[in-house]
Amino acid sequence: MLTLTCPYCGVTVEETELAPGGEAHLKRFGPGASDEDFEGYLFARKNPKGVHFERWRHAYGCGKWFLAARCTATLEVFGTYPAQTTEPPAELIAKINEKRPNWGGWK
């Protein structure tokens, strides 16, 4: 069973206490954007076999959204962090660089 640490509560919980929310760090496009950008934002997903940045909600806890970096090929969790950011924390990136030298970046 997948366990993640909620960065707000600091508790490590099983996935049944959490609700997954898909790819993180999507750049939003809204009114006035081109059709291509809007379509990409709504539908196109990276869905990588490897390092994935994703949204989770501590649904049966504090109820807040947070972000996680996880490997979809091994289920290894690299870390979690609060959602009030536009990019992953530098330490987390450094940690992933070390563990997965060829991972190709988070964008």
Binding site: L2, G22, N47, H52, E54, T72, A73, L75
Partner: peptide
């Protein structure tokens, strides 16, 4: 509910 390639 989450992205996964492990067949588990």
């Amino acid at each position: 509910g989450f992205n996964n390639y492990t067949q588990r």
